[in-house]
Design a protein around this nucleic acid. Structure first.
Lengths: 201, 201
DNA sequence: ATTCAAAATATTGTCGACAATCTAAAATTT
DNA sequence: AAATTTTAGATTGTCGACAATATTTTGAAT
């Protein structure tokens, strides 16, 4: 998860066991867990490799993310307390300051973007949705972000979109908040696609 | 997955290892995989239990399912071939016959309902979406269906809804097909909720 | 009789070793 | 010289045993 082991590299059980100072038994159990999280792929009798995300897989993840986070925004309208919404607004004000200070470059890098999404996901109060997005998909997206050092810095635009979503949630407008969240993620997806194309040249 | 081990029962590693004629090592690795699928829950130093779905958890799963299958229907509009859509229509005709023959009781039991949903999910051509719905969530929903012997038999209504969805896909109407699919699942969810209430009395 | 403490039991966590399988390297054949 | 077969090496899969931890039972004290 930290990215210490490069994406795509083969995992040698004896080597890893030595480096972590554990026996192969617990290590294999751990690998099986990572397999469940789709972070390593395992071929019987051949070995385990750290998964690599190609453009298509990232594309697919973003489609899933759009559906799930859209639902999260809808449920957040239903289930976030007035207090939680007030705190969400405070967070956005902090982000505003942070962008003004750092000239906007560090918004995505310091998890500011994820902070916002994280709160709304939590606000859905749907435990399964939370686990799916925050534990399972997040690691995969994060893995990609490690590689391409987030060039998609469009902090002011993103912040504006965040504010719109926040407003819709404040008004408890389920339809609108879902729509805006889906568009927001869809836009991010398109930016990544663009990036992949220019990268390929 | 077959339901041999009752939901909620504790899993004894030595017992299971004996009954499957394997050592505890591979068994533990298998349990870790099931843990990843959320089919067993594990507490350190205490043991593993087959998960039980309460009403809330099932409710949450259906919310996730609504979001994901709605997206699947949308993507199916984009990615299903004309041929695949024609086959989908044939499937619905078969279902029609099956319902007429068996007086409609066996539609859900024999996986007819799932057949339809399965094809649309596959039609999305999104591998991650397919895996999430068909491999991960399906087992959980199936686990519940084992317990309550599917009382929600409203076969004719469901079939009609399926036909409407199919029509929307045929017309490549992404908006409508997603909407109809979400309503279809939302309706099923409400039926289950109803059932839980009457069950609790 | 009830409650708390301590010992006994059972279960989980970990390890090192051996067997089965795959990958590569070397040797033989064409 | 190239290709195929064979052999050697490494890696994965499996096992039984031991240590650490939790649960249950037993006993004693209130």
């Amino acid at each position: 998860m930290r990215g210490d082991i490069p994406s795509g590299s083969k995992i040698s059980e004896p080597d890893l066991a030595r480096s972590y100072k554990v026996s192969r038994g617990p290590l294999r159990e751990a690998i099986r867990r990572l397999e469940g999280l789709h972070l390593v792929a395992r071929v019987p009798h051949v070995g385990a490799r750290v998964v690599t995300l190609n453009a298509i897989q990232l594309f697919e993840i973003y489609q899933v993310r759009e559906a799930l986070e859209g639902m999260a925004a809808r449920l957040a309208c239903r289930n976030m307390s007035d207090n939680e919404i007030a705190e969400l607004k405070n967070l956005l004000d902090d982000h505003e300051d942070s962008i003004a200070q750092s000239d906007g470059r560090e918004y995505f890098q310091h998890g500011g973007d994820f902070d916002f999404h994280y709160r709304i996901i939590q606000g859905s109060k749907n435990q399964r949705l939370i686990e799916l997005l925050c534990s399972e998909l997040y690691h995969l997206i994060r893995m990609y972000r490690f590689r391409s050092s987030q060039i998609l810095s469009r902090p002011q635009t993103a912040l504006n979109e965040h504010r719109q979503i926040c407003l819709a949630i404040e008004r408890r407008d389920e339809e609108l908040s879902e729509l805006l969240m889906r568009r927001h993620i869809s836009t991010a997806q398109q930016h990544i696609e663009q990036q992949f194309k220019t990268e390929g040249e």
